[in-house]
Design a protein around this nucleic acid. Structure first.
Length: 282
DNA sequence: GAGAGTGTTGTAAC
DNA sequence: GGTTACAACACTCT
């Protein structure tokens, strides 16, 4: 289930192999997943691939865009003849057996490669849209955590009138994009800030610490290829991410805090499981 | 069978 | 209008 580092990992890998390839055939296994006329993709070339927040955008040779959101359970798997993009062995056995029962869309290219969109819960989507529609999708999104435009000053201003818990605020895409539940919990632990604090109660120093912790957490997530729990996320090669091996608090209820050794506690905040250290996160 | 799950959006109530 | 809680999306796993 992808967050920003997972999406970034997928985009980086696809950007190495997909540009220049021409779509030969598109097969829909579930109509709900694809919005638009999938048959009009045939014959189009993929020009390049970019990302904004957790939305992937494939620029196509007719000027339109294929945009993809994986939501909770989506996966994009790129398969060449032997399923060996990265040269190693995929972590997940099931990638040898595609399309699977969770495959919703299959895109075949003239060069013999195939891109599979798997999505267990059917929340994810693919849309064929114009540049204007892309702009509409992007409108209302705050800067990415990885965006230099995201500054301490900007966040101080954004938090100034917000009485929502800071964890809810940093997961609000209108304020900033890229921190999902796992990384939001970890960034707050790294910054030693209690997730329940009203956003406006943070001092400038704390906001600065939180921003740096957020950037550091996401950067590490990207370096490690994202997070895989229960084999649910794999990158385009079928490889699992490695962030879960260094995760600070998420899923570590009862285990020692990496800052102070106190037991990690789980609560619920904004409807989401929230892990934190009640000793050092204040 | 109940509950929870890494995302996002919409609704109703205050 | 801001805020908050909750449901919904649809499915699998514990």
């Amino acid at each position: 289930m992808p967050e920003l580092p997972e999406v970034e990992t997928i985009v980086r890998k696809l950007a190495l192999v997909l540009p220049g390839q021409v779509i030969k055939k598109v097969t829909l296994f579930h109509p709900k997943t694809f919005h638009g006329d999938s048959t009009s993709l045939v014959g189009l070339k993929v020009e390049n691939i970019t990302r904004r927040a957790k939305i992937m955008r494939f620029n196509l040779s007719d000027g339109r865009n294929l945009v993809v959101h994986l939501k909770m359970t989506g996966q994009l798997i790129y398969v060449d003849g032997e399923l060996r993009l990265g040269g190693g062995h995929p972590t997940a056995d099931w990638v040898h057996d595609l399309p699977s029962k969770h495959t919703r869309v299959m895109v075949e290219f003239e060069q013999g490669k195939t891109l599979f969109f798997n999505d267990q819960r059917l929340f994810g989507w693919m849309k064929l849209v114009t540049d204007e529609e892309v702009a509409a999708l992007y409108s209302g999104l705050g800067p990415d955590v990885t965006d230099p435009a995201l500054t301490t000053d900007y966040l101080v201003e954004a938090f100034r009138r917000k009485s929502v818990p800071i964890k809810v605020a940093i997961m609000d895409n209108a304020i900033m994009c890229g921190l999902g539940n796992i990384y939001a919990c970890d960034a707050l632990n790294l910054a030693k800030i209690h997730p329940q604090r009203p956003a406006k109660s943070l001092s400038e120093t704390e906001v600065d610490r939180l921003l740096k912790a957020s950037q550091e957490t996401l950067t590490k997530g990207i370096e490690l290829g994202g997070t895989t729990f229960d084999g649910k996320y794999v990158d385009v090669d079928g490889f699992a991410g490695q962030y879960q091996s260094v995760v600070r608090v998420y899923g570590r209820e009862g285990k020692p805090c990496l800052n102070c050794g106190h037991s990690i506690v789980k609560t619920k905040l904004g409807g989401r499981g929230t892990y934190f250290c009640p000793n050092c996160q204040v």
